Amino acid sequence: MPHPSAPVSCTDCAFAWNSATMVDGLRLIGSCPRCGGALSFRDPEPDQDRADEPAAPHRSTDERAPHLVLGLPRR
């Protein structure tokens, strides 16, 4: 039986996941990675409009060269 307070749980093996990252990943997978069973999500799926938008590329405002930010490599 799925755990009622977990964000996502398997209806077959009753394993539960509590991480928001796991919830997003399991929505993409669509089945339990442990047993292949059906998943039960506590919250409804988010709006598809937001999920279809491409993510903005990460662009740092720091224009320094990487070695100036990270320091000299260790030997």
Rank of each mutant, 00 (worst) to 15 (best):
M1S: 12
M1E: 08
P2K: 05
P2N: 04
P4L: 03
A6T: 03
S9F: 00
C13G: 06
A16Q: 04
A16R: 02
A16D: 09
A16Y: 00
W17H: 05
S19W: 03
T21N: 07
D24H: 05
D24L: 05
G25I: 03
L28V: 12
C32W: 04
P33N: 00
G36I: 09
G37D: 10
A38K: 15
L39N: 02
L39S: 02
L39D: 01
R42G: 04
R42T: 10
R42F: 07
R42I: 06
D43Q: 15
P44C: 05
E45H: 11
Q48I: 14
D49A: 15
D49E: 14
A51R: 14
A51T: 04
D52G: 03
D52E: 15
P54L: 08
P54W: 02
P54T: 04
A55P: 02
A56I: 11
H58E: 10
H58F: 15
H58L: 14
R59K: 13
S60G: 12
T61Q: 13
A65Y: 08
A65K: 12
P66R: 06
P66D: 12
H67S: 10
L68Q: 12
V69S: 11
V69E: 11
L70P: 02
G71M: 08
L72C: 07
P73E: 11
